[in-house]
Design a protein around this nucleic acid. Structure first.
Lengths: 208, 208
DNA sequence: TATAGGAGTGAGTAATCACTCATTATTGAA
DNA sequence: TTCAATAATGAGTGATTACTCACTCCTATA
């Protein structure tokens, strides 16, 4: 007996479009996923959070895993920083400063998402490969040209690129992701200060 | 009808002790957990991997979650490095070199475990808190005295400790954990070389 | 040798899961 | 207004889950 059927409407009385419903579900799924992990979340829970019936979910996505992919797909490609807005002549050093601050902001704003992505990358090869590709693209595609420019101009020492980039990314990710995971970690600094301290070490090292 | 009952024995014909069985189960559980995650693993699977009946598991552990805790408990405390074996007069710089190599080896040997711990820390507060405590103990308890000694002796610049330590740990963890997760990452170096390159950057910085 | 009790077993259980589908609601076009 | 197409629904389904328990096996002691 399916008698009390009332489809939800938005203000102007229009029923939501299929695309809007899809987005509702994805948004709810991301929320639940980041809280409980993929395997710890149920489709019933996601449906409740999205205010739709469980069956509706499977009208928009064939399987639960398809939701996971659809959730991460647009998020994983957020590699493009808007360095270009000023666009005028960065020195390589300035580029690194700007890039780091940009990444730290991004990670801070999407903290749960980032932690979730790295966690699930272990268990889902699709996620792992997409994330791997994104990291490489940022590292090789964006950073490397600036790094080489810095070396050519005599601004940077000619250290091997991959290990240097890996250390740089490690600093940023550990600050952004783990600080979010362990909110008790002693950290008085603002994001701006944290970036400056990281850069001070990265550029000049610990030794006198 | 439970008629074909044959308890397994080890070489000398003795039945395993309760403690030995417990360890079998923990070892099997760690294997399964690191492959599929906590929620992705089933007690039936763990039992099969440990060559015991599913019921046996629940004679040794009250719940599945208790297995998780028992698996990680001894692993999480592996903070004590054996720097002391030579024991003679490290300079602070030498300490950092030795500590880093030691940690990289540890992470490499227990790669799946480390990734699993960080992943599950998100979803289980017990794991999170234990891990958090271990990180703090290593950072504050082990590294800090050496760091301060280095500053006093004029070997290190007086940078703020927490951000510096965080960057240091970030480099090490990102190398150890993510390199294990993304085996395709370009990395020709041995662990020894990787450590040296990390230290070169950490001590002297990128700028000329 | 007899026996008490701990260790081990695996079929059974209630709960929960992802997913289905018959039915109803809502739409835009004719 | 009618109607065909599409969207939404939620009870239902078979599979799977963590966990139980009645029972058997094993061993240490007397």
């Amino acid at each position: 007996m399916n008698s009390n059927h009332v489809t939800k409407r938005i203000e102007n009385g229009r029923r939501k479009t299929a695309e809007e419903r899809r987005q509702d579900i994805l948004e709810a799924a991301l929320n639940i996923f980041t809280q409980k992990g993929y395997n710890g979340s149920t489709t019933a829970e996601i449906a409740r959070a999205a205010s739709v019936a469980e069956g509706t979910i499977f009208r928009h996505f064939a399987t639960k895993k398809e939701i996971l992919i659809a959730v991460l797909e647009p998020k994983i490609l957020v590699g493009l920083i808007n360095l270009d807005k000023e666009h005028r002549e960065y020195t390589p050093t300035e580029f690194f400063r700007c890039f780091l601050k940009n990444r730290l902001e991004l990670i801070k704003e999407n903290n749960g998402l980032f932690r979730f992505m790295f966690a699930e990358a272990q268990y889902h090869s699709e996620v792992r490969e997409a994330l791997f590709k994104a990291i490489l693209e940022q590292g090789i595609g964006i950073i490397k040209p600036w790094y080489e420019k810095g070396v050519e101009q005599g601004e940077f020492r000619p250290l091997p690129f991959i290990p240097t980039m890996r250390s740089f990314m490690g600093m940023a990710l550990f600050y952004g992701i783990f600080n979010g995971a362990f909110p008790g970690l002693p950290q008085e600094e603002t994001l701006e200060e944290a970036a400056d301290q990281m850069l001070e070490l990265f550029f000049n090292g610990l030794l006198v």
